[in-house]
Design a protein around this nucleic acid. Structure first.
Length: 803
DNA sequence: AGCACGCCGACT
DNA sequence: GTCGGCGTGCTC
C-alpha cells in the first residue's frame, strides 16, 4: 500500500475526484484511509482526505504526500460511505460532504506568503524591505497592504520575490502547560543548593516549589509572580524544572452542576410505547418508530430510558433536537440523567468547544450526543439508537449546500448499525405520519398528558369582528383583559408574533408605492429604533425616507406590525408592564437567547414577546397565558406546507401554557378563524388535521403523494438565467418518464435576491429510479457556465422552502 | 481555487 | 510591438 487516493481541498467539480499520491516510506505505517493529509497540488500545497489506499495507479508520475495531519483518521469507513452518499444525493462535492460531517475546526486554512529572492535585493520599496529584514517572510495580505497587489505580481514575474503557500495547522487542542521538578525532593534541594546564581524571580519560584512540591501550571505561577515564562525557561535549561503540556477540554458546561436524576416510573401509556423500542434495541434490528405524543405526554422520558438500555448494552446514542430548543433546560435533562457520558453539539459553541465535544465522541469518552442537525454525523461506531425529537421541525433540513435532511441520514445510519430510529413529535410531519399509516414506520402513541392535566383551554378571536366594533389595536379586548388578569395575579404571559422589526412594509398612501430593496424583490422592513429600513434577505439598510421616493408625497405610512411595534404598543397600553422581546435582533449575540430566557424564568419580566423561536422547549411553571397575535401570517405565504406549519406552530405554542400546577389558557387572534388549521389547532386534533390536509395535498399533487425536486438557476443576467433554465427543462422532459410532472420554468417567488435573478422548475414524481443520475447530468452539463459565468444552479431533493 | 497559456483589442 | 483582459484547460 504505497499509494493513497486523495480528495483535495479544491472546491470545484473539475477536481471532484481522487488524485493519487505516493506515500513516503517514513509515513507508510502512519497514513490510513480517512486521514487528512497535506499534498502538493499544482504549484501549492493543499489539504486532502485519503479515501483509499492501493498499490498501483493509472497515473505515471506521482507526487508524494507531504505529511499527515492526523494520528487517527477523522473519517471512519462508515463516514466515508455516508459522505459519498451525501455528495450523490445532495449534488455537492465530495469534499463539501466530508467537511459538513466534521467539526469546522478541522477545515484547513491557507496563508499565502512571499519571500525575498537575491535578485530582488534593493529593488523593493523601503516599507516592504523592512518587513523582510524583520521577519524573513511576509504574508501576501500584509504585502498587498503596503505596496498593492499589482506591484507584487510584477515583482514575482521579475523574479524578485517568491510566493509559497502554507496549510495552516491551527493549534486546535487547548493545551495547559505545566512545569514539574525533574527530580525527587532531596535531589531537587541538592541541585538548588549547588546552583551558584539564581535570579530574584527564579528564587521565588524555587521556594514555591519547595513549599509545594508538585507540578504547577504556568497560569498558576503567573498569577502568583507575574509574567514568569522567561524565568521558567531558564530553570528548565538548568534542568531543575521540566515543562509538560496536557490537553484540556473546553467544557461549555463547566460552571454548571447538574442534579442527578433517576428514571421516572413510566405510565401505562409510556410503557406500551417504549416496549417495541427496547425490543428492537435488544434484537439489534433496524426499525423507524414514529412516536406521536401530545405535548406534555412524556416523550423525553421515553428517550432517556431507551438510551439507558442502549448504554447498558455498551452502545451509543444520538439525540437530535432543533437548534432553537437546545436550551439549557433540554441539556440539563440529559446531563442530569447520564452525567459526563453526554457530549453536546450546537451552533452556540465556539469552534474550539465543538471540536472538543466532537473528540470526546471520537475517543469514545462519551456514549451520548445531544445536538442539532449536524450531530447526526457524530463518529460513533456502535450506535444503539438514534432519536430525533420534534421530528417535524424544518430545521432538520439544511438549506445551504449540502442540502441534506438529518432524518434521511439517521435512517441510513440506523440501517448500517442495525438500530432503531425514533422520530418524536406532538405534531408529526405529514410525510412521517403517512409513512407510519402505511406501515413503513411503526407508530407509537402517547395520547394522555403525564400529569393528567387537560390540555389548555384555547380560544379563537376573530379580529375582523374587533375591527368592526372599532378596536383598531393589535390586541383584542379578550386578550388584553386576560393579560391584565395575569399581571394582577403575578403570572406570566407568552406572546407570539411571527414578524420581527417594526412593520412589515412601508407604503406611500398617495401613489401606493411600497419601499423595495434595490437588490432583492422584497419589501423593506421598518426598524424604528434605528429609524432605518432593512432588507432581511441581503442585509441592505437605509435611512427611512421622509417623502416617497417615487412621487414625493409625505404620506408615507407603515403597515403590518412587527415585534418592535408590539413592544411599544404594550408599553402604551400597560405602562408598568415588563417585557422581554426575543427575536433575531435581540438574540444575535452569543448566549443572548439563554440569558433572556433565564431572566424570564427568574420573573424579571411579565411578558415574553417573541417570534417563533419562543414556541418550543420552554417549560416554565408560571406561564398561564399564551397569546398568538396574528395566527394567519404564515397561512398566506405561497407554500404548500403553510397550513401544516400554522397548525404545528399553534399547537406547539399552546403547549407552553399550564404545563404544571396552574391551568393554562391560550388566545389565538386571527382574521381567518374558519380555516381548518386554526380550528383544529384549537381542538389540538392532529388526526383530523392530518385527514383534512392529506386531501389538500392529494388534490395539489404535493408530498406525501408526490416527491418534489426544485431546480433553481440564478445570475445577474436575466436572459442567461431564463435560457439555462429552459434548456434544463427541455433536457428533463426528454429524459424523465411520462408520469413525471415538470412545472416551469418560472420566476421564483422571490424573483431577485442580491441582484441575482432567480428562475426555477419543480419536478413532481412518484417513482423515478434514474432521477438522481439524470439530475447529476444536469449539474455536469452546465459546469462550464457555473464556473466561467458564475451561474449558480442548485438542485434540491425534497425542498422545504420554495422561495 | 490558483495558475498558465493563448487569443484578442488597446495603447506606448 | 507590448500590456492586460478573459476564456479554457490542468492540477495526481
Amino acid at each position: 500500500m504505497k499509494i493513497a487516493s486523495v480528495i483535495v481541498d479544491v472546491p470545484t467539480f473539475q477536481t471532484n475526484k481522487p488524485f493519487d499520491y505516493l506515500i513516503p516510506e517514513k509515513f507508510e505505517e502512519v497514513i490510513q484511509k480517512g486521514m487528512r493529509v497535506i499534498v502538493p497540488f499544482g504549484s501549492r500545497k493543499v489539504q486532502g482526505f485519503v479515501v483509499e489506499l492501493k498499490d498501483v495507479s493509472a497515473i505515471e508520475e506521482l507526487k508524494e504526500i507531504v505529511e499527515p495531519l492526523d494520528a487517527i483518521p477523522v473519517l471512519n469507513d462508515e463516514l466515508l460511505y455516508l459522505g459519498n452518499q451525501l455528495a450523490r444525493q445532495a449534488f455537492c462535492l465530495k469534499l463539501t460532504a466530508y467537511q459538513v460531517m466534521l467539526p469546522p475546526a478541522l477545515k484547513a486554512k491557507y496563508e499565502k506568503y512571499i519571500t525575498l529572492k537575491k535578485d530582488g535585493l534593493g529593488k523593493l520599496p523601503h516599507s516592504l524591505e523592512q518587513f523582510f529584514q524583520e521577519k524573513g517572510r511576509v504574508s501576501w495580505t500584509e504585502g498587498e497592504k503596503k505596496v498593492g497587489s499589482s506591484f507584487l505580481y510584477r515583482a514575482v514575474k521579475k523574479g524578485w520575490i517568491d510566493v509559497y503557500y502554507e496549510v495552516k495547522d491551527k493549534g486546535n487542542k487547548k493545551l495547559i502547560e505545566y512545569f514539574r521538578p525533574v527530580d525527587d525532593l532531596s535531589t531537587f534541594k541538592q541541585k538548588v543548593f549547588a546552583t551558584s546564581r539564581l535570579g530574584k524571580v527564579q528564587k521565588k519560584i524555587i521556594d514555591y516549589y519547595l513549599s509545594d512540591f508538585r507540578p504547577h501550571s504556568t497560569t498558576e505561577l503567573s498569577k502568583q509572580f507575574g509574567n514568569v515564562r522567561g524565568s521558567l525557561q531558564s530553570l528548565e535549561r538548568m534542568e531543575l524544572l521540566k515543562s509538560e503540556s496536557f490537553e484540556q477540554y473546553r467544557d461549555p458546561y463547566k460552571n454548571r452542576t447538574f442534579t442527578k436524576t433517576k428514571p421516572l416510573l413510566l405510565t401505562e401509556d409510556q410503557k406500551r410505547a417504549i416496549g417495541p423500542i427496547v425490543q428492537t434495541i435488544e434484537k439489534e434490528l433496524h426499525q423507524v418508530f414514529l412516536l406521536y405524543g401530545i405535548t406534555g405526554s412524556g416523550k423525553t422520558e421515553i428517550y432517556l430510558q431507551s438510551i439507558q438500555e442502549v448504554i447498558r448494552r455498551g452502545k451509543e446514542a444520538i439525540v437530535l433536537v432543533p437548534e432553537i430548543s437546545l436550551t439549557p433546560q433540554m441539556v440539563e435533562r440529559f446531563k442530569g440523567r447520564f452525567g459526563d457520558k453526554v457530549a453536546v453539539l450546537h451552533s452556540g459553541l465556539s469552534v474550539g468547544e465543538k471540536y472538543d465535544e466532537w473528540r470526546k465522541v471520537q475517543r469514545k469518552e462519551v456514549q451520548v450526543v445531544v445536538g442539532a442537525r449536524s450531530a447526526i454525523f457524530a463518529p460513533f461506531e456502535n450506535l444503539g439508537v438514534i432519536i430525533i425529537d420534534e421530528e417535524h421541525e424544518t430545521s432538520y433540513k439544511q438549506e445551504e449546500v449540502p442540502r441534506y435532511h438529518a432524518r434521511d441520514i439517521a435512517i441510513l445510519r440506523g440501517k448500517m448499525h442495525r438500530c432503531p430510529v425514533v422520530l418524536g413529535s406532538a405534531t408529526p410531519s405529514l410525510e412521517s405520519f403517512a409513512r407510519a399509516q402505511k406501515g413503513v414506520y411503526r407508530l407509537l402513541t402517547l395520547e394522555k398528558r403525564m400529569n393528567e392535566k387537560g390540555l389548555p383551554d384555547v380560544q379563537i378571536v376573530d379580529m375582523r369582528e374587533e375591527l368592526r366594533t372599532g378596536n383598531r389595536s393589535m390586541f383584542s379586548r379578550l386578550l388584553l383583559e386576560k393579560i391584565k388578569e395575569r399581571l394582577s395575579r403575578k403570572e406570566q404571559i407568552v406572546l407570539l408574533l411571527n414578524r420581527r422589526g417594526y412593520s412589515s412594509f412601508v407604503m406611500c398612501r398617495d401613489c401606493g408605492n411600497v419601499l423595495q430593496c434595490p437588490n432583492c424583490e422584497i419589501s423593506l422592513t421598518y426598524h424604528k429604533v434605528t429609524n432605518e429600513v432593512k432588507c432581511h434577505y441581503c442585509g441592505y439598510e437605509a435611512r427611512t425616507p421622509n417623502v416617497c421616493p417615487d412621487c414625493g408625497s409625505e404620506h408615507i405610512r407603515f403597515f403590518g406590525s412587527g415585534t418592535q411595534k408590539v413592544e411599544e404598543e404594550l408599553g402604551k397600553l400597560l405602562p408598568n408592564v415588563r417585557t422581554i422581546r426575543m427575536d433575531v435582533d435581540t438574540t444575535r449575540k452569543k448566549g443572548a437567547h439563554e440569558k433572556l430566557l433565564k431572566a424570564f424564568e427568574e420573573k424579571k419580566a411579565d411578558i415574553l414577546l417573541g417570534t417563533q423561536m419562543i414556541a418550543k422547549g420552554l417549560d416554565f411553571p408560571n406561564i398561564t397565558l399564551v397569546g398568538v397575535l396574528t395566527a394567519d401570517t404564515m397561512l398566506h405565504i405561497s407554500d404548500f406546507r403553510a397550513s401544516e406549519k400554522t397548525f404545528q406552530l399553534l399547537t406547539q405554542v399552546s403547549g407552553r401554557a399550564g404545563r404544571h400546577e396552574l391551568p393554562g389558557e391560550v388566545v389565538i387572534q386571527t382574521y381567518t378563524p374558519e380555516h381548518y388549521s386554526i380550528q383544529l389547532a384549537q381542538k389540538q386534533d392532529f388526526r383530523q388535521f392530518y385527514q383534512r390536509e392529506m386531501i389538500m395535498r392529494k388534490n395539489g399533487q404535493y408530498p406525501p403523494f408526490y416527491y418534489l425536486v426544485q431546480i433553481q438557476v440564478s445570475h445577474e443576467n436575466l436572459q442567461l438565467v431564463v435560457s439555462i433554465m429552459e434548456k434544463i427543462v427541455l433536457f428533463l422532459r426528454s429524459k424523465l418518464s411520462k408520469e413525471v410532472l415538470i412545472l416551469g420554468p418560472s420566476a421564483s417567488p422571490i424573483g431577485k435576491i442580491k441582484n441575482k435573478y432567480r428562475y426555477q422548475c419543480l419536478i413532481k414524481y412518484k417513482k423515478e429510479p434514474d432521477l438522481i443520475d439524470i439530475l447529476q447530468k444536469v449539474q455536469e452539463m452546465f459546469q462550464q457556465d457555473q464556473r466561467s459565468k458564475n451561474v449558480s444552479i442548485s438542485i434540491d431533493l425534497n425542498p422545504y422552502t420554495l422561495m
